[in-house]
């Protein structure tokens, strides 16, 4: 999948070296030099997830090359013995990891916004530009982070790929209350969760009689049954417009 997009994107990469050959070389170098920590697809592991549109320690391409060459002080990111040219090739490849595939959209973004705020009631759980609920992922830059295809699938079948960091948990308290929500934090002794009405609860585990971790489950309804196909496409167009 990465390879398929490389050639399309090569022309858009700012670096002179980012020819298809340079990018292929960057990908090879990434495999041998970076995948050990960042994973073969750059989506993290020991090291940071690089498959995102904005990198926290590399605001621009020069900063990214510097991070690759010299490491990032105070983090586990080491320096490297890559040549300046190789570092630029790796940087060009890393930039492609966070780019999302595009496609021609049939929906209308303005109508999609109306669906988001109205019938979809999406803002109950999702934030855009600081407004909305906190239960689900922040969608402020959803279009920059996710492809239309991913967004469409997330709407139609939210449990196909639950985003990382949003584990659904169900607990039963000592006095018999049942609470379902998304895990905010957990350690050996305590659990914090955000319930479906956006309230945060904190429990000592000893206060709970049951804890269920619903891997692969999502509190988000499948919009396949709630929206017409055209409305889904409008919503996708709106989300894609959020950059």
């Amino acid at each position: 999948m990465i390879k398929a997009t490389l050639f399309l994107l090569a022309g858009a990469v700012a670096w002179g070296q980012a020819t298809p050959d340079g990018l292929a070389q960057g990908e090879r170098l990434f495999g041998s030099q970076c995948a050990y920590c960042h994973g073969p697809r750059g989506d993290g592991g020991r090291g940071a997830n690089l498959a995102v549109p904005r990198l926290r320690h590399a605001a621009d391409d020069a900063a990214l090359v510097q991070a690759i060459s010299r490491g990032i002080p105070g983090t586990g990111m080491p320096g490297s013995a890559l040549s300046a040219r190789q570092a630029r090739q790796v940087a060009a490849f890393v930039r492609t990891l966070g780019r999302v595939e595009t496609e021609a959209l049939s929906g209308d973004a303005a109508r999609g916004r109306w669906v988001f705020e109205g019938k979809g009631a999406c803002g109950r759980c999702h934030t855009i530009a600081g407004r909305g609920g906190g239960l689900g992922p922040d969608l402020t830059d959803a279009g920059a982070r996710s492809s239309p295809q991913y967004l469409r699938e997330a709407l139609l079948d939210p449990e196909k790929e639950v985003p990382g960091g949003f584990l659904q948990v169900r607990v039963v308290t000592g006095d018999g209350r049942r609470i379902t929500g998304v895990r905010v934090n957990e350690d050996t002794f305590s659990l914090q969760l955000r319930d479906l009405s956006d309230q945060v609860h904190s429990f000592w585990k000893r206060e709970l009689t049951e804890i269920h971790k619903d891997q692969g489950k999502s509190p988000m309804p499948a919009y396949r049954s709630l929206l017409a196909p055209a409305e889904v496409e409008d919503l996708v167009a709106y989300l894609v417009s959020l950059q």
Binding site: A35, Y36, P40, D43, G45
Partner: peptide, 21 residues
């Protein structure tokens, strides 16, 4: 563990795989 290349060059990572959870 996904196998990658591991050409040896002094000072460069010499591992040969990337890891995913």
């Amino acid at each position: 563990y996904y196998r990658t290349e591991a050409p040896y060059e002094p000072g460069k990572v010499f591992a040969g795989a990337g890891r995913r959870r």
